[in-house]
């Protein structure tokens, strides 16, 4: 069983949170939607389960699929009355991705966001250092602030010459 992201799990309903934690992000299948901080709350009232989710970016096209996948995961465990609620506030931030999940991202080949958005440089797209997920060099440059998905920027490594995705800090 995967660890529940301590930055979002409120310590309640571990059984339900663990079911939600089986659902992976369709764009980044190495992380679950709980690792990502997309799942904000899971509550139960009688037989009715409510899962609150928040989008990473307003236009994230994966939200529909994530909703469907969460419902399916609960159905497989015998919970048939599952409703998904979209919440906007507080706004999603990369600070909700746990360090454990950041390590998984890097192993997968995506440079993780810096540890905290409190670093203003990071928000402005100038993180102190972005490490190449392939060769671990810090000699890297940004190609574009916009990448293959809304949440990623495109970087390249000046040492191993490989381009790579960098998870944007917001």
């Amino acid at each position: 069983m995967e660890t529940l992201n301590p930055l979002v799990w409120n310590g309640k309903e571990p059984e339900l949170w663990n079911i939600a934690n089986e659902v992976v992000d369709p764009e980044i299948p190495v992380l679950t939607v709980v690792d990502m901080g997309i799942v904000r709350d899971v509550t139960r009232e009688g037989d009715n389960i409510t899962v609150k989710i928040t989008p990473t970016y307003s236009g994230c096209p994966a939200m529909e699929m994530i909703s469907t996948d969460i419902k399916a995961a609960f159905h497989r465990k015998g919970f048939n009355n599952v409703s998904i609620e979209f919440v906007l506030s507080p706004a999603w931030t990369t600070d909700w991705i746990s360090d454990y999940a950041k390590d998984k991202l890097e192993k997968y080949g995506i440079a993780p966001p810096p540890r905290s958005t409190a670093d203003k440089n990071a928000i402005l797209g100038k993180p102190k250092e972005v490490r190449c997920p392939q060769c671990k060099s810090l000699n890297t440059v940004m190609i574009s602030n916009f990448g293959s998905t809304a949440c990623k920027a495109l970087w390249k490594c000046e040492d191993c010459k490989e381009p790579f995705d960098y998870f944007k800090c917001i």
Binding site: S58, G59, P61, L88, F146, G147, S148, A150, L154
Partner: peptide
């Protein structure tokens, strides 16, 4: 290519904001 992706990404942000 990179600008194509950038402008499309920005368009997507606006569309998402519109939906809200």
């Amino acid at each position: 290519l990179e600008e194509d992706i950038a402008l499309s990404n920005i368009a997507l942000d606006y569309l998402g904001q519109t939906r809200i």
